[in-house]
Design a protein around this nucleic acid. Structure first.
Lengths: 140, 140
DNA sequence: TGCGAAAATGAAAATCATTTTCATTTCTGA
DNA sequence: TCAGAAATGAAAATGATTTTCATTTTCGCA
């Protein structure tokens, strides 16, 4: 399966594509190939090896844009480097292994309720939240 | 209560103290005052303001050492900066206004339980978590 | 008590991911 | 076709963290 093909697939299954430029499409393409988390630097290297013409700056910019459009998830490795992956559409949280970096998507309805309760108690509006759990997975 | 006093308290209530040098004791002292998470840079500033003579390099080294001795917890802010706190501190979370930046400390026992439950369900050990709520405060 | 090895210290330089700047190129719509 | 807007990327800047290395302090022991 070519990357071009997967891009076409995405094109007809999302509406977001209309707001994406070439670079963002390239980044999505490589993220699809990777099929998990990768850092900006890694994605840049992979794109280079694939013969894509794209600068590191543009990779960073595209990722930022995709993250703020909720198309890509961003979290942090233990060394602080940001890692990215295509996100599923449902809102979820992550259980991340500090050792090997493997992640499990977890359910967070308790968090949603906590957020609402706390926001209400303090009169906050338009609330969102972040929540991640870090630990050491069974394998490690 | 002076910091010196709290250090003495710690001295007689832990065994780890025997393996600590002066700098590590200073760092622990300031972490006790902070009572929650702080970055290395922040801790360094606080120590300076307290008139302690300690270099930034040493703050980093002490923190590394304390982390590897399991005396201090390390996690990452969303921007990738490392933050530290004394292990076993009961910690709190923040309700942050997107507009004016004001923050309210909130209780998070629901989160603690959620963390434990999720970790257990997936067999994770040594878990920590981050959780913040963002919204617009009553004033804004 | 004094000596020498080992540990601790911190200033400065190095590292490395990420962001900013800015000049150039590409796109777009009238 | 043309002007303004958006995109691009090389190079410089930034900022946290680590490394280097020369100096100081601590500590065991003769």
């Amino acid at each position: 399966m070519s990357m071009a093909m997967s891009m076409v697939t995405r094109k007809i299954t999302t509406t977001k594509i209309d707001f994406m430029n070439k670079s963002e499409v390239k980044v999505i393409g490589i993220l699809e190939r990777v099929g998990g988390f990768a850092s900006a630097q890694e994605l840049y290297q992979l794109l280079q090896r694939n013969g894509e013409s794209i600068g590191l700056t543009t990779v960073y910019r595209s990722l930022q844009s995709l993250v703020s459009d909720k198309i890509v998830d961003q979290l942090r490795r233990e060394d602080g480097e940001a890692i990215y992956r295509l996100c599923g559409d449902s809102h979820h949280h992550h259980l991340v292994c500090k050792q090997c970096g493997s992640t499990v998507e977890i359910e967070g309805s308790a968090i949603e309720r906590w957020t609402k309760a706390m926001a209400e108690e303090h009169g906050f509006r338009e609330v969102g939240h972040t929540a991640e759990i870090f630990g050491i997975c069974p394998k490690c």
